[in-house]
Nucleic acid binder design. Structure first.
Lengths: 223, 223
DNA sequence: GTCTATACTGAGATAGAC
DNA sequence: GTCTATCTCAGTATAGAC
C-alpha cells in the first residue's frame, strides 16, 4: 500500500463516484476516505470535474483498446471482405459489457457519464479516432447506407447501449416483470436489435405505415 | 403578466434548467430572474429537486396524453387487428419530437433528465400506466417476442430516443460530417431503425456471427 | 395561506506557509 | 508536494410579517 497521493485519490474517487454518482460525492468525502488533504486534489487535478475526467479516462482507455483490437481481429479474419455488422457491433459493445463484469459499479457510472454532458467534452478529445475507425467499419459492412444516416444509427446505438449499461430494472420494475436476463443475454439481445436497425435499407422509409389507412399526412412529427 | 409566484418560479426554472442544465442552475439564479424570494421556492416546492419534478411533470403530462391519444387512434383505425410496430413507435416517439419543435430547450432537458436518475424516480409514479399501455401494444404487434425481451427492446428504444433528443451533433462533429437532417428525418430514421430491431424474431440469435470462421467461442461478453 | 429576511451548514476553490 | 486557513457560493431551515 505505498500508493502515491494521486493514486489514492483516483482509486477512492473511482469507487465513490461509482457507488454514489458524481454529484452526490463530495471532495471532502473522497479525501476523508483516501486519507489525504483537500488541497491535494486541486493540486493534482485542478478541479472536481477534471478529477472525474481522469477517473474515466483511466478506465476507458483499455476498453477502447479492446474495442480496436477486437475489430482488428474480425477484419483480419474476414480477409478481403468486410466483417458483418454483427461483428462490428460486437467489437464495440462487448468490451463494455466485459468491463461491466469486472467492475459493475464503474460501468454504471460510465452509462451515467455517457448520458450527461461529460462525454460530450471527452468525446472530441479522446473518442475521435475510435469513432472514425468504427464509422469506416460500419460503412464497409453497409456500403449502401448514407454516411450521415449511418452516423445517426451509431448515435442510436450509443444511446441504447449507454442506457442499458446504467440501471437494469427501471422499466421492468415499472411493468411488473422480473428481469432474469444475464449480462450475456442482454448484450446479445442488444446486438441483434441494433444489427437489424443498421441493416435497414436506406431510402425506403416506412413513412405511410405498412398497414391501415394512411393515418397521418403531416410529417411524422406531429399528430 | 399577473402570474402567481408559483408560476413565475416554474416558468423561470424551466427556462434556466433547459438552458444550463439542472446542476448548473442555482436557486438564487432562478429567484433573481423570476424576481421572487428564495424561501418562496421552498414554500411551494420544498426542495430544488421537487421543483425540477414539477417543471418536468408540467411539460411531460401533455406529451404523454398525446402519446396515448395517438395510440388510441391507431388502434381504432386498425379495427380488429393490431397496429404495426411502426405505428406504436410513432405514437411513442412523434409527440416528443413534436414537443421539441415547440420548445427545443425543454426537450433537451428531457433527454438529460431521462438519462440521469431523475426519470427513474418519476417513472414509477407517473410513467407506469403509459408504459403498460405501450408494452401491451408492442406485445400485440409482436406476439412471438418474449415479454422480458420485449421490455429490453423498449429499454433500448428509450435509450436511443433520449440520447437523440439531447444534443444533435456530438458524434457528427467528431466524425467531421455535417448534420443536415431535420427533426422530421431524424424521427423517421429512428422509427425505422427501431422497428427493424423490434421485429427481430426471438430465439434466433445472431450468436456465431453470419460470416467468417466463428470468431469467439466464449460468450459474446469477452474478447 | 403567502411571502420576506436572515441565519446555518456544507460544497468547491485558493493563497501561502512549510 | 503537501497542508492550514480562509473565501465564496450553494441548498436548506426557520421566525415572523402580511
Amino acid at each position: 500500500m505505498t500508493l502515491t497521493t494521486k493514486d489514492k485519490i483516483l482509486d477512492t474517487a473511482e469507487r465513490l463516484f461509482a457507488e454514489q454518482g458524481y454529484d452526490a460525492t463530495s471532495l471532502r468525502q473522497i479525501i476523508a476516505a483516501a486519507a489525504v488533504n483537500l488541497a491535494a486534489v486541486h493540486y493534482h487535478f485542478h478541479s472536481k470535474e477534471e478529477l472525474l475526467d481522469a477517473v474515466i479516462l483511466r478506465k476507458v482507455t483499455p476498453v477502447n483498446e479492446e474495442r480496436t483490437a477486437l475489430l482488428d481481429r474480425f477484419e483480419r479474419e474476414a480477409g478481403d471482405s468486410a466483417p458483418p455488422v454483427e461483428q462490428v457491433l460486437e467489437a464495440f459493445i462487448a468490451p463494455t459489457f466485459g468491463a461491466r463484469e469486472r467492475s459493475p459499479q464503474f460501468v454504471k457510472l460510465m452509462g451515467r457519464v455517457h448520458a450527461e454532458g461529460i462525454m460530450l467534452r471527452l468525446m472530441t478529445e479522446h473518442f475521435q479516432p475510435l469513432l472514425r475507425r468504427f464509422l469506416d467499419a460500419f460503412q464497409r459492412a453497409l456500403p449502401d447506407v448514407d454516411r450521415e444516416e449511418l452516423l445517426w444509427r451509431i448515435h442510436f446505438m450509443v444511446g441504447a447501449m449507454a442506457h442499458t449499461l446504467r440501471s437494469r430494472p427501471e422499466i421492468h420494475q415499472a411493468a411488473g416483470v422480473k428481469a432474469n436476463f444475464g449480462a450475456d443475454q442482454i448484450s446479445r439481445s442488444l446486438i441483434d436489435f441494433l444489427a437489424a436497425g443498421f441493416r435497414v435499407s436506406w431510402g425506403a422509409t416506412s413513412a405511410p405505415a405498412p398497414a391501415g389507412p394512411s393515418p397521418s399526412k403531416t410529417p411524422a412529427v406531429l399528430p
